[in-house]
Design a protein around this nucleic acid. Structure first.
Length: 812
DNA sequence: GCGGATCAC
DNA sequence: TATGGTGATCCGC
């Protein structure tokens, strides 16, 4: 909170040094002694870099301190409530795991640069060759960078199962082809490696990590171990063998070794691939036990997205491993943003994206350069101009134009500043960009006058690129402007119920109508990955759910747009639900959400949110999980469902006399590992009888159609969801709605807590003030500042005059 | 939309 | 020995 922006440049070094030392003495988070010493040494030598590092570290410590203070104010009741709320998510997500499991394989390549001279061109060429090989296994693989790629070889494995041996046979090169253009030493090295290839491939997985009861092996009639002939090698049909084959081929072709991770999702695959670096592979079998086993002691830092700072903050809470992360989920939900929390929960449950999202559109482009101190303003301006020219060239290569210009300045003390300016129409030429950048730079120079800016880095960035729709819209709006009748615009809205206000939509909003149908139509080539996946929609690996954000915004829209003059009535073409009084933007998001499917947080909201949002969620679930079941179920029906289910459950648990403890019941204890409640197996399950038999539901996925190549039109076969069986009470639940089902399970799991809460609630608020209880839950999630006890009174975000889906109502 | 921070590669 | 460049995202404002 106390952002120290003093500018005593002269004393700064001294000051910072003192601050740094004091901070360390305070021993806030116990820096490594040796490290401190080193830093101090460097600092006393006047390294501005380390002084700055110290400063940053201090900031992090401050953040941690604030967090701890927040934590200290959390009451046990708040924690229990949070606990309750996080359980739903556990179930919803766990199902996601199951659905994601089958045969999804990601692979990560880690070439050994030491073998090949660090010549970029060559590296690129090698990278291409690599990639050629990868395309054999998954034509739609996702290349993250030159040296990293994810593959989904589900389909390949399916076909591979029936391949004759000679299709899986590869000859070991004798080294003849490697002689050209490589220093002798390298050839030797490579040759040496070649000789070791078979043993390497066999031994790179420690014996105790060898998959047990591998479904692939179990189902296959033959042994999957590769057979070595004189100079050829035959790979088996399992995932493991296929990946060995890939690595073998890569090494043969490029002389580079690669490491690989085989796992049910990209997050795990990535962690896996690091396990046996640089020339090995590791597999996590596609079942929950294997995933949980792997996750159990995994330090969170290993997970992509958890960096130095996050690690330190979580460590302050005693969280180092994924298990601990899971155990503290309730606390985390109170201390971190919803997005972060969601991410944490993902990690702790071993969940990740199973989609290989196509490369998203670029969001920005920039150039920056470090140099020795530059203090003269005229030099700075001309450098800026130079950078703008370079940027303009790069932009031109990709034909990009943008509206936001950002300059970045790092002074000799390593303090970084960015300054941005957004203009109304796109720019792209060096002159246009410089005109804006120059102003930003001047402002900074003027601000410090008469002191010069002592820079060590300068950068220029362009962002706010218009998307396709924006461009089309621009065209259309011109056309529309020229056409008196303005027919072009109204045509795009023909599927929507319109109001007269439609005519007054801003061009941007109008464009979204078009964009929605365009987008969704192409997505529904029927890439079921959008339509049927049952976990949150992750378009990029390890990112938290977009759909949740959409939903959140949607709710905001629902709540705030009532009095907006842009409000309209629409009917969602997916759920056929009338969207009363929301803006077009909100509507579009709603429809997107319908198509995208449920998100973990919705369950969560079910407990605490208003009637309206709960209904949205349910609707979405229906649409999503059983596409053909999307009758217009109204809210009352849903509520009845919930009520019946919850009552059933509570009684059953009592009968069984086995109410699990709230905290200890978790995904990580395999207590309920045998249940096969609700799962959404995918098409690929067909290749794995082992799993298929366990599932009562079949939904489909088409991993291939999200790529740039024209997707194959593909209509999924839809099998209607069957009844779900609660793992706790072991009774079939008469609902196909996963949200409702999850709630039922939660209640079973948390029956004791629920009763306590109800008691509390009744004791404290005999006058039926369930609303405030309800509200607080949501406020805690969305507004960090207001989530402390007593600070949330009423939130604007909560829509008044609506029945609420409160705990009390729910449990009645 | 802006600016600082974090993260990955 | 001094400490990179590019791009993305999140959060709080």
């Amino acid at each position: 909170m106390h952002s120290t922006k003093e500018k005593n440049d002269n004393n700064k070094d001294d000051l910072l040094l003192r601050m740094g030392l004091n901070d360390n003495k305070a021993g806030m988070e116990g820096l490594d002694k040796e490290k401190i010493n080193k830093i101090i040494m460097e600092a006393t030598r006047g390294s501005k870099f380390y002084v700055n590092e110290l400063k940053k570290e201090k900031q992090v410590n401050q953040r941690i301190e604030n967090m701890m203070q927040q934590k200290a104010q959390i009451t046990s009741q708040q924690l229990r409530k949070a606990q309750l709320q996080s359980t739903s998510n556990y179930y919803a997500r766990r199902f996601g795991v199951r659905a994601a499991m089958p045969g999804f394989i990601a692979k990560r390549l880690c070439p050994q640069l030491t073998i090949v001279p660090p010549n970029f061109d060559k590296y690129q060429a090698v990278s291409r060759e690599v990639k050629e090989i990868l395309a054999d296994y998954d034509p739609n693989f996702m290349a993250m960078s030159l040296d990293e790629a994810y593959l989904n070889i589900t389909k390949h494995l399916q076909e591979r199962k029936n391949w004759p041996e000679d299709k899986r046979k590869y000859f070991i090169k004798t080294g003849n082809s490697l002689e050209n253009g490589k220093p002798g030493e390298e050839v030797n090295k490579v040759s040496e490696q070649e000789r070791y290839i078979p043993p390497l491939l066999f031994n790179d997985i420690p014996p105790d990590l060898h998959p047990q009861g591998n479904p692939f092996q179990a189902n296959s009639e033959e042994q999957n171990n590769p057979q070595i002939l004189q100079n050829a090698i035959v790979f088996g049909t399992s995932a493991e063998e296929a990946v060995k084959e890939i690595r073998f081929r890569i090494e043969q072709k490029t002389t580079l070794t690669a490491s690989a991770g085989i796992a049910p999702n990209t997050m795990l695959a990535k962690v896996c691939s690091d396990k046996n670096k640089p020339n090995g592979q590791y597999q996590i079998l596609p079942n929950r036990e294997a995933v949980m086993d792997f996750i159990k002691d995994l330090p969170i830092r290993k997970v992509s997205g958890i960096g130095k700072v996050t690690e330190k903050m979580l460590k302050a809470l005693g969280i180092i491993t994924c298990t601990e992360l899971y155990q503290q989920r309730a606390l985390l939900s109170l201390l971190f943003s919803e997005t972060s929390w969601h991410h944490f929960l993902h990690i702790s449950l071993g969940l990740g994206s199973t989609l290989l999202a196509r490369d998203g559109d670029r969001k920005s482009m920039s150039v920056e350069r470090t140099f020795s101190e530059m203090s003269k303003a005229d030099e700075q301006y001309s450098l800026c101009q130079e950078l703008c020219s370079e940027l303009a060239q790069d932009l031109q290569k990709e034909g990009l134009k943008g509206r936001t210009v950002t300059i970045k300045l790092k002074n000799v003390n390593f303090e970084v500043k960015t300054r941005a300016s957004t203009v109304s129409s796109v720019v792209s030429t060096a002159e246009e960009i410089f005109a804006i950048a120059k102003d930003l730079l001047r402002t900074e120079i003027d601000a410090d006058f008469p002191h010069p800016l002592r820079l060590r880095l300068m950068g220029v960035r362009l962002s706010s690129f218009p998307n396709e729709e924006d461009k089309k819209q621009q065209q259309r709006s011109i056309i529309g402007f020229l056409q008196a009748g303005n027919q072009a615009l109204s045509a795009t809205g023909h599927m929507l119920e319109k109001t007269d206000k439609d005519q007054f939509l801003k061009p941007l909003e109008m464009s979204q109508k078009k964009s929605f149908f365009d987008k969704k139509r192409s997505e529904r080539k029927w890439s079921q990955q959008d339509t049927f996946k049952c976990e949150a929609v992750d378009t990029q690996s390890l990112q938290t759910s977009d759909s949740f954000q959409v939903l959140k915004k949607m709710n905001e829209n629902l709540e705030t747009s009532e009095n907006s003059n842009k409000s309209q009535i629409f009917t969602c073409p997916i759920s056929f639900r009338e969207q009363g009084s929301i803006s077009l933007e909100g509507f579009n998001k709603q429809v997107d959400a319908c198509l995208d499917g449920p998100s973990i947080n919705e369950d969560h909201k079910m407990f605490s949110c208003s009637h309206a949002s709960s209904t949205e969620v349910n609707r979405k679930e229906n649409v999503h999980h059983s596409f053909s079941l999307h009758e217009k179920q109204d809210y009352e029906t849903h509520q009845k469902h919930s009520g019946i289910n919850s009552v059933d459950c509570a009684e059953l648990v009592e009968t069984k006399g086995n109410p699990p403890k709230a905290e200890s019941v978790g995904a990580l204890s395999d207590k309920h590992s045998k249940e096969e409640c609700a799962v959404f197996p995918r098409e690929s399950f067909n290749t794995e009888q082992h799993y298929q038999n366990s599932f009562s539901t079949v939904l489909l996925e088409d991993m291939g159609s999200s790529q740039q190549e024209s997707p194959q039109p593909y209509l999924p076969e839809v099998i209607i969801t069957q009844a779900l069986v609660c793992p706790i009470c072991n009774l079939e639940q008469k609902t196909s709605d996963l949200t409702l089902f999850n709630m039922h399970v939660d209640i079973c799991l948390n029956k004791d807590i629920i009763q306590e809460l109800r008691k509390d609630s009744l004791a404290n608020q005999p006058t039926k003030s369930t609303k405030s209880t309800d509200t607080s839950g949501q406020v805690q999630k969305t507004a960090r500042k207001t989530k402390r006890p007593g600070m949330y009174s009423s939130s604007k975000k909560v829509k008044p005059n609506r029945p609420r889906h409160t705990l009390d109502i729910f449990f009645k």
